[in-house]
Every structure is written in C-alpha cells, then in structure tokens.
Design a protein around this nucleic acid. Structure first.
Lengths: 139, 139
DNA sequence: TTAAACTGTATATATTAAATTTACAGTAGA
DNA sequence: TCTACTGTAAATTTAATATATACAGTTTAA
C-alpha cells in the first residue's frame, strides 16, 4: 500500500476543516509532514479526478471541489493508489513447465484485484466528514 | 503488502498438489523463484502456526499439516503478514497543536485495522484447494 | 559413529522502491 | 513586471525488500 493514499486523505480532511476549504502546498506539507513538491504531485492527481480545484499565482492553492459528506475514501484510493495492494514481487515463473509455478502469478493477480474491490467497498462507507468526525471525537 | 504472503500461499498450494504433500526448501525456492533461506524462514513461521510440519535431516523438508479444503488464505495471511496493509510512512505529527495533524495517525491506523478485517473476511472465503483449482483451470 | 542432507536462524550485502530535495517553466494576481 | 503560487521532472537520499553466505543443530543412513 502506497502512502499517497494517506497523504491524499489527510489533505482532503484538512481542506474540509478549513474555513474557505483552501490551503497551499506549503501549508498542507507542513501539516502532513512531508515536502511541498510531493503534496503538489498528489494534489495534482486529485485535481485530475475532480476532488480539488487549483488556483495558481499569488494567493493560490488548493480548494476542495467535492462534498465531504459524500466523497468517500474509495474515491481517494482510486485516484491516488489504484492497484497498489498487490506486492511488486511475484512468485513463480510463467516459463516453467510446472503448472503451479507457471500459473500462480496470474491467479494471485486475480485474487489481489478481487481483494481491492472488497477494500473499496469498505472504503466506500467512509466519507471525508466521517474521518473528520472521528478525529475531532478523539479530543 | 508484504510478499511473504504470496510466497507462503504459493508454497502451500505447491505442497497440497504434491504426492505426499512434501518438499524441501530448495525445491520450493526453485518453484517460487526465490532462495532457500527465505523459504525456510517463511515455512518456519507457517510451522509455528501449525500449517506445516517440518522434518529435519536427510530426506527432510516440509509437509502440509492442514486440510487444504479447509485452510484459507486468511490463516496464511495472519501467519505471514499480519498488519502489513498499513503503509510504513505515516502522515501528521502527534506533537503539533493542530487537531488534524496530531490525530490523523491514530485514525488512519484504526481505518487500516478495520480494512484488514475486511480483507481477511474475503481471504477467509478462499481455501488452498480453491487456489489450486483456479490454477489448474487455467490449463 | 560419522558423513551427508536437511532445517533454523543470524548477519552481511545487494537491489529496488519510496521519499526528499532541487530546480525551473508556466500562470495569475498585485 | 515582480512575486507567489502550481506543475513537473530529475537527482539524490533513505528505507524497505530480497539475496547470499554461513554455520549450529538435527536426523538418517552407511
């Protein structure tokens, strides 16, 4: 699992909680504890997925472009980390004559794809607002 | 996600398919495409979880110690990779005064723990035999 | 009773992925 | 037209993953 998903979620929760729902990459990076360039890269993909809007130039930054009550972690996951559940390393070798060795990669691929669907159906139950509430209830 | 889970699953499927349900670390490593020391380490944890038995000395190796019809990927996951869903890198900083920054780690932790339970309930539907069938049906 | 073939495990090394840093072009507001 | 932003790429550093090596302990068989 890629940590882009965590950064993306954190950033959106932060924006949702901000008056005006806006912040620039430096402020977000400071809050998330990473560097502005990374934030910009991740926010850029969120923009391409319609979750935020971007404002360039002086006084610019990122503005929430979705309803936090309706937007779920599933959308954020899809935008930021689709396919990252499967480990990079794969077992077996398609060239081998052994049925197991040659076919395990394909089957494990299938299983991870199905797993990701299950994960998404779970993430789909959690909205940005839910996460924000949970955070505030900790206080 | 740790690839130990994939190696563990592959190895158990391989054993399940073998006459006598037995193989040594070198044979398994060759089939999985890794080195014998890694296989031994993973099989050693499977043994501690009762999924295989070990036979040391000449003619030794690993023997399946579970019913492949009843043993699920969930058990294998728990034995080999419990907790590996959560990324290593965590956002936010508990020391910060901002509610979001200081509490996101805890909440995301919770969310990943819950995610893992969902994943497990999916893995729990897939037995070693199921995986073996899927592999053979590819032929 | 000793040599051979295994496992168990630790440690060092190599490789790969992840994250940071730096840099700079493009854009918009003052 | 200067300044403060985003977008993006490339270089570097850091951390995680995987391999290789080594050797003690165990069992079997000659």
């Amino acid at each position: 699992m890629n940590s882009d998903f965590v950064i993306a979620s954190h950033s959106l929760v932060l924006l949702a909680n901000l008056p005006g729902h806006m912040a620039n990459s430096e402020m977000i990076a400071e809050n998330v504890c990473t560097n502005p360039a990374r934030v910009r890269k991740i926010m850029s993909t969120l923009r391409k997925n319609g979750l935020v809007k971007t404002k360039e130039g002086i006084g610019g930054g990122y503005i929430l472009n979705c309803d936090p009550e309706k937007t779920t972690l599933s959308q954020i996951y899809k935008a930021s980390s689709y396919g990252s559940l499967k480990p990079h390393w794969c077992t077996g070798d398609p060239e081998k004559s052994c049925v197991i060795s040659s076919n395990t990669q394909v089957i494990m691929d299938q299983i991870f794809n199905e797993s990701e669907l299950h994960l998404q159906s779970f993430f789909n139950q959690i909205t940005i607002s839910n996460v924000l509430e949970r955070i505030k209830n900790l206080e």
